[in-house]
């Protein structure tokens, strides 16, 4: 039972670690795209931002 719990925890840790590494890549790549999206003022709505 203890071994099974250990195995389960290791699996979850591996999933989390690999997922976080990949998610960091997603974050960086989408951030680059986000900057391009924000810089592209074509079709920009005329309404001012809140505040």
């Amino acid at each position: 039972m203890h071994a099974l719990a250990d195995f389960g925890i290791r699996v979850l840790e591996t999933m989390f670690f690999l997922g976080m590494v990949g998610s960091t890549l997603v974050l960086v790549l989408t951030a680059i795209e986000d900057v391009e999206t924000l810089m592209d003022s074509k079709d920009e709505a005329s309404e001012p931002p809140p505040g």
Binding site: L12, E13, M15, F16, L18, G19, M20, V21, G22, S23, L25, V26, L29
Partner: peptide, 16 residues
């Protein structure tokens, strides 16, 4: 890769 990574984090968190 990206989609799979986000899903892995979500699944690991949900199960935990």
């Amino acid at each position: 890769l990206g989609l799979a990574s986000v899903f892995l984090v979500l699944l690991a968190t949900a199960v935990t």
